[in-house]
Design a protein around this nucleic acid. Structure first.
Lengths: 117, 117
DNA sequence: CAGCATCCTAGCTGATACTG
DNA sequence: CAGTATCAGCTAGGATGCTG
């Protein structure tokens, strides 16, 4: 059997959603695409409501799926940089589309946000 | 306070993902956009792995969020038709892009599907 | 600084049976 | 035909504390 990171997709749409559908994946990809490169701590501040555990977990999944690159600097104190991959970059226009679509819906429906990010 | 269908979005991207991020939402929207109009039973066959409970629940959410329209015919036996709304239609290009993107990734990674839908 | 290890819970999802 | 109702499991996600 070939490599299966997540199992049980039923179609390519299923597959795609499992890749970017996590609670923070979209936001992380978007921030990385905006900033170019971000360190772990910077991501933690940017995605302000994420816990270290979830950040690590989400970054690992994105890395495994080939959507981001992780670069470790062997120094003390530790330094790790994240940046979006080419494959991940392909998703950016659509993430932006979704953001704009969301903004429009929020405007129309009068929905309140906890905080803008 | 204004109407809040789902609570606790942190940004518009968050908001958007909660609207289309359900396990079957993307597929349902896509099938509706392809077919134009589908009855409950037709959707059940098309989204072959969904249970009646999940189908109803998902359709209600999509309806509440204004992504689809539900039309009940007052007759026996019952007949209910679903079709995508204008707002939902705006998401179709995005969904199609995701499908194609997913297909490409599956091709590259040699990932197996349970069944094509 | 950039994480891992544990424990824990909510809610999403599923299986099955029943109904107007 | 188009759903409800009920029960139950799983896992995504959260809280907290510790470490190289």
């Amino acid at each position: 059997m070939t490599k299966k990171v997540h199992a049980g997709y039923v179609c390519s749409l299923d597959y795609a959603f499992q890749r970017i559908g996590g609670k923070y994946k979209g936001r992380i990809l978007w921030h990385l695409s905006e900033a170019g490169v971000l360190r772990y701590g910077e991501l933690r501040k940017t995605v302000w409501d994420i816990t270290p555990k979830m950040l690590t977990q989400t970054l690992r999944e994105l890395e495994t799926d080939g959507l981001i690159h992780r670069k470790v600097y062997q120094e003390v104190p530790p330094k790790v940089e994240y940046k979006i991959s080419e494959i991940g970059e392909q998703l950016v226009p659509f993430i932006n589309f979704l953001r704009e679509w969301g903004e429009k819906q929020i405007g129309n429906g009068g929905i309140e946000l906890k905080q803008n990010v």
